[in-house]
Design a protein around this nucleic acid. Structure first.
Lengths: 119, 119
DNA sequence: ACAATATTCAACCTTTTGGTTGAATATAAA
DNA sequence: TTTATATTCAACCAAAAGGTTGAATATTGT
């Protein structure tokens, strides 16, 4: 193996980095679905679909329930929330950037009052 | 190339699917940094760091500015916002699930009036 | 002009990803 | 019990990811 431990966020973001899987997540946001139902919009083998599903499952984005010969999948929102939380650092960045803009604004006010030259 | 066109979200999520790059994003949320400053916490070659940076850059999560011999990077929040928006489908899921829970609750009330046993 | 600093480029290597096909497993239906 | 349905497994493959090293490029300081 490449890494001893793969962080959950690694797996979640990796799982979402593929259009097929993102579409699957959207489908499962609508309702529970079986493998063949999930495979319907995609032009690939069932084995390939099965692998995509496993990626989502390992990332704990979905949960499997076996019902007879059908495997039914359900979206599990916790990990999505985790990803959302991580990305939310950008809010912090925004606030920083706002500070900078404020600063720039103040500086430009001074410039307008005096006529100052920097560097 | 494998795919003719790589979707922006593919690139953004892929970029975030790596702890090193996520840390870089966090660092750049604090302040602008050069390549060597960005490389500081990581135990890898500058060439490797350079590659990680390029991934973030291609995903348009960061912006490069060349100042003399230094390359300075700045976080760009737009794509993060895009990712955030995408994930927000989970809110929709929540509302669906709430409906189900409500339903379950109603069902269990009926059950509780009788008798219950589960393992 | 020369050396030091900052960074990228190119070639290479290994592991992972995303797909294929054909066979295997498990359940359901005739 | 045979056949159809639902899904996975195993082996294989090509391309991408993530790292290395050594050389190249560009800028700055002496």
């Amino acid at each position: 193996m490449a890494k001893t431990k793969q962080e959950p966020l690694d797996q979640v973001f990796m799982a979402l980095a593929d259009g097929t899987r993102r579409k699957m997540v959207h489908m499962l946001a609508e309702s529970e679905l079986s493998v063949s139902e999930l495979s319907e919009p995609f032009d690939m083998s069932l084995a390939a679909v099965s692998k995509h599903i496993k990626v989502l499952e390992n990332a704990r984005l979905i949960k499997r329930r076996i019902e007879g010969r059908s495997h039914i999948f359900q979206l599990v929102p916790e990990q999505l929330t985790g990803a959302l939380d991580w990305i939310s650092i950008y809010r912090y960045f925004w606030s920083k950037r706002m500070d900078n803009l404020e600063q720039l604004f103040n500086e430009s006010e001074q410039v307008n009052e005096g006529k100052k030259s920097e560097d």
